[in-house]
Design a protein around this nucleic acid. Structure first.
Lengths: 218, 218
DNA sequence: GTCTATAGGCTGATAGAC
DNA sequence: GTCTATCAGCCTATAGAC
């Protein structure tokens, strides 16, 4: 390849793209699409704002590219759970852990998901919708499995999967405010996250367990 | 009072105010503060957009007035539960029902709450914050009570109350999208809501019940 | 590939007539 | 109290220099 002459340029280009994506991800998550100014994105990334149009074709395209990347990462992370043949209660436990793990690495995901859901998918790209719904289907499928197998009590899987996702998404989406209200920076929220995961796994496990089945000891 | 001469005007004035509030409530909930245009509010209310500045002193003040009214209504609705001396599991059940009932009448509440929480209380009025936190404290208090009384298992009340509120807020906040995805208008979501309330009451009740205590029959 | 400068459109607010 | 007309500011996108 004739990379030699353009090596320096190529690296700069990708550095610019990356810087823009990182800055924009944080800002979009924090203030939403409408609340984010392209000037801020550019300044925060340390590049000129014209680069947004050049590299991504505008603010909206940048937003969609970020959303796509985020959803794709989620898709990959849940691969094992999706095709696992473990019993439903184990898969549920694994899902809660995996979601929390993902949210810890990619804090923007839950916020962007909830923002999209609130706005009724107003500025979501049409071909991103399936990726979006996958997440919901996976959880509902696990609950359906448990009901079918008889390990879960006879809940409505539709409303129940919404409850579970609501708990998860809300917890991580509110992290920022809670830190703010907690006084200040909050040293480390890791113990908080693991308490949340543990309690949610237990509460859901016990709450869904069929009356006849003895729930596994916590 | 000298209302006679200004009676017609006063009524018009309040009608204008009311129309603006109604229109703005719906639009703010649907698109957020930044996503809502004052032109839209005025047009949707059928009045001139100058009326927003005249009656409320600007877009932001209108927003805060709506948020205050919404939070005050929530405060009033939960009065009985707040001062109830019933056992924790009953209070929890009542709270879930009351929240759902409130959300059905005031669909904007959960959406505005979640939007505020996401933006880190960026444009919330400072004297509104206590009202906001009340809601959270109430739920956490109920869970603390159950743990103290020994009817609830030894959960972390902080993370658990977030799970519960997350389920509630998320379910009602996503109503719009879910209707959109369900094909179309969705005839009536009442059966869905009652299924949600029932399952959430059961799942939380069973999930939190202390191992020694026998959960009440559903 | 990156930057500066600027265009063009829209937003929220207000002065002044009725 | 309400409306029309208009302003100043801000936002995103782009043309053109380097």
């Amino acid at each position: 390849m004739n990379d030699r002459i353009s090596e320096k340029r190529r690296r700069s280009s990708e550095a610019t793209r990356g810087a823009l994506i990182d800055a924009a991800t944080e800002l979009f998550a924090e203030r939403g699409f409408d609340g984010t100014r392209v000037d801020q994105i550019a300044q925060s990334a340390g590049v000129n704002k014209a680069m947004i149009s050049y590299h991504f074709g505008g603010k909206k395209s940048l937003y969609n590219e970020i959303l796509a990347a985020t959803l794709n990462e989620a898709h990959d992370r849940f691969h094992e759970i999706r095709y696992s043949d473990a019993p439903a209660d184990d898969r549920l436990r694994d899902f809660i852990f995996a979601f929390a793990d993902l949210a810890a690495t990619q804090p923007a995901l839950p916020v962007m998901v909830i923002r999209e859901v609130l706005s009724g998918g107003l500025h979501i790209d049409e071909d991103l919708l399936p990726r979006f719904l996958e997440l919901f289907k996976l959880v509902q499928g696990i609950i359906d499995q448990g009901v079918r197998e008889g390990t879960f009590t006879n809940v409505n899987s539709y409303v129940t999967h919404l409850s579970l996702l609501g708990s998860l998404v809300f917890f991580f989406a509110t992290k920022q405010v809670r830190e703010l209200l907690a006084g200040s920076p909050l040293p480390s929220s890791v113990p908080e996250v693991s308490a949340f995961v543990r309690d949610l796994q237990r509460t859901m496990g016990r709450g869904l367990a069929a009356p006849t089945a003895t729930p596994k000891p916590a």
